[in-house]
Design a protein around this nucleic acid. Structure first.
Lengths: 186, 186
DNA sequence: TAGAGCATGTAATAGGTTACATGATTAG
DNA sequence: CTAATCATGTAACCTATTACATGCTCTA
């Protein structure tokens, strides 16, 4: 087991309690969509592998009218592996920001095109900030008393800080682009 | 040609002037490392494909003592394709933030472990901010008068906004974690 | 004389998305 | 009656990293 992040993401969720692949997907969407996601095409093979390595155990829960649920639970060995990863310092990551890539080449198109692009990106950030606040409310009300709450709210806080900064950048950049358009028009 | 970002990244750089695969790599490292990167294993096959599709032309520049340079230049068709992509609105992207993934599962390890982790991440952000300022200086002095300068500085500004926000979040999170450690110690 | 820089490329592998396949129940 | 939700999984495909292969020159 080397550097597979998603494997640890799944391991981490199992660390909070036994659950199915379906649950894992839902959990990511509900409370971690801000900084992580995973598709079924990844989750199910990972669960299989974790069980194969003895890091999780599988049991089947029958339901009537609905498909069986395949519940995975972390083993002690699994928790060990998770802990070892959690304390390992993170490496520098270069996020790929498509908006910056486009703006970087902005000279190839018109100022109006660039303005449209940044305005649209600003709209996305506003929606994102809204989503984050919904997650925050959900955690604070529905998950009160949960021992993971403090940590989960820290990830929410990150989203608020970063998206506010992005919003400020959008506004600054937009006024600069508009100024450039004015000057050119004169 | 569908949704391949790196292909457009290469196309975009060629839009600034003819250059080699080697140049492309260097350029990304020098002025776009803040938001994009690409390995030779990607760049060379992409250049080949672009030439195959008639979006770029290839010519060989001999040098003495050094290997030949394979220079690619954008064709009109290539510029068309680039422009079409540039004006297309960006989609929502979910960045994967390993630090948040680890912190999210913070309950599985000690407060001291989490503090160490965030401190280390803060150090990375400080280095990052430094790199961004170096890029800014480089652009402002060495690239004065370059028609792409304004746009390139906007991407630098993004980095400054976001990394400052991250730094603030680190400090807030660290004081919260330390408070939690104090309370537990009492 | 060892290592870094110049310069191009391929092959193996890992990581990830999307489409496909199945099938019942429930809400609008 | 149609779409969504529940639920699991595989296969094909695309994207990206790393290792490998080559070989000259310049600097410490």
């Amino acid at each position: 087991m080397r550097e597979n992040k998603s494997q640890y993401a799944v391991l981490g969720l199992l660390g909070m309690g036994p659950m199915s692949g379906y649950d894992i997907k839902k959990k990511f969407e509900k409370i971690a969509s801000n900084f992580w996601n995973a598709s079924y095409g990844q989750i199910y093979p990972i669960l299989k592998r974790l069980a194969g390595k003895g890091l999780a155990t599988k049991s089947i829960e029958k339901q009537d009218g609905k498909p069986d649920r395949h519940i995975y639970a972390l083993t002690e060995k699994g928790r060990e592996v998770l802990r070892r990863w959690l304390v390992e310092p993170v490496a520098r990551q270069i996020g790929r920001h498509e908006i910056l890539l486009k703006l970087f080449f902005g000279k190839q198109v018109s100022l109006a095109d660039n303005i449209r692009q940044v305005e649209h990106f600003r709209d996305l950030s506003i929606v994102e900030l809204g989503n984050i606040k919904v997650t925050e409310e959900y955690l604070k009300t529905e998950k009160k008393g949960n021992p993971n709450l403090d940590y989960q709210l820290m990830t929410v806080s990150y989203g608020k800080h970063v998206n506010s900064a992005i919003l400020n950048w959008c506004n600054e950049t937009l006024s600069q682009l508009r100024k450039m358009a004015d000057e050119k028009g004169t």
